[in-house]
Design a protein around this nucleic acid. Structure first.
Lengths: 226, 226
DNA sequence: TTAATAAAATGATATATATCATAAACTGTT
DNA sequence: AACAGTTTATGATATATATCATTTTATTAA
């Protein structure tokens, strides 16, 4: 089997400095696995033996704390690395990961990535850079959401789906209202109320899971200042 | 000048794989700078040209968002790396950093660290591991705090100072009540109220900045389940 | 297709936290 | 020592969000 994925992190982003021989090798040892919507990819604590990235679909990272509630950290989209953040820790998943949509994950044994890091400094450097960008974005998003009120948080998440994930003003939201609540730290009822308000104000149009952002300007203002 | 810092990240943690020649070299090119309590170390957006770590003192990372309020991300303690998280991004500080106590920061030009990463795979590997631990801890703390109520958050922070920073049940809290509020995302008045309640309940003793944790068990319970 | 179940929606009420006001206790400065 | 400015502290009130209850609308399974 030979890789073909044009947007593969490994080929395009990270392996820009890896010799051709190494790339060929990686392409042959990679494996792919399909997950159905709702399937668990990793449980918290599972051993991580592979470097993984999302080829297609959508994946959520979440944790359950002592409050008994699920808290969603973030959502990975195609070509995001999966579990990069814990791959170098104790090689145990720090989060629960599950598929929000049917997803395909590409695996490369972690030991092979580690070997390349140890033998190819330029690859290691690019890897650190990529790692830094991913984690910084996650931390920034967490802090930003916490600084906002209910409407601001809901607006922020709608814009995240429209701008970052689907790159479209119309999209089928892949998570339930309850999951939006778990992502922004508010209750399901209040998320629904905020969405209803946006709908009545003609800022968005809702048809079940389908959401269209009608007034991008106002939603952005609500997200920014709310 | 020759390094002497026994607990230096560079010597002990990260340079375990660097050849002796490289260590000697690093020791000679490092510089140190003192910051008085309250002094700014980096402003958000400042260029980062050095890898830095905290030799002594205490440093806060914070950001000011559109709400006009300061939000503290975390507090670095001696031998923590400073700005590791943005060193490999755009080499611009993503946060404001200021000294909470008189502090000494040790600098090594980033270009030298980058050279070692590119030429010494084992160092790169250890660097990634260290990076991973630091960022994971930050993200976990952010999520945990957000999952708690007022008392739980205040208890959590008191335990953080006692257990992680000062390793003592009695300590002088280095930040104001306002800064505690900025760290846990509550208002100053409510932080003071929570502290007063803990005092009345004989869970802690307060004498200005001096705090003693009397009932560790109850405070831990409040932090865990609050 | 229908029943059963879950998700979305909305209202009423409770609760936690924020805001505003004020006073007391510090801190630093002259 | 006295002053101004800041931090800490506390109370009263307002506001935002959570909780509980109920209905409607989707989804899933039989």
């Amino acid at each position: 089997m030979k890789c073909e994925c044009k947007e593969c992190v490994i080929q395009s982003l990270m392996f820009s400095n890896v010799g051709v021989a190494e790339i060929e090798n990686i392409c042959y040892i990679k494996t792919e696995k399909e997950f159905k919507k709702g399937e668990i990819i990793y449980n918290k604590g599972d051993e991580i033996s592979d470097f993984a990235y999302l080829k297609s679909g959508l994946v959520k990272y979440y944790s359950i704390f002592n409050d008994g509630k699920s808290h969603i950290l973030s959502i990975a989209k195609p070509f995001d690395t999966i579990n990069m953040i814990n791959s170098f820790n104790e090689c145990k998943s720090l989060y629960n990961l599950s598929a929000l949509e049917d997803s395909v994950i590409c695996y490369i044994p972690l030991k092979d990535i580690k070997t390349i890091i140890k033998t190819n400094g330029n690859f290691a450097f690019d890897f650190i850079q990529k790692f830094s960008i991913v984690t910084n974005k996650t931390i920034k998003q967490l802090m930003l959401i916490n600084s906002k009120n209910l409407s601001g948080r809901v607006a922020f998440i709608l814009l995240h789906f429209a701008n970052d994930i689907y790159k479209n003003q119309v999209f089928d939201i892949p998570i339930s209202r309850k999951e939006i609540a778990e992502l922004i730290g508010m209750t399901t009822e209040n998320v629904i109320r905020a969405l209803s308000e946006f709908r009545l104000e003609k800022i968005i149009r809702i048809n079940g899971k389908e959401i269209e952002i009608i007034d991008m300007d106002r939603l952005t203002k609500i997200s920014t200042y709310g």
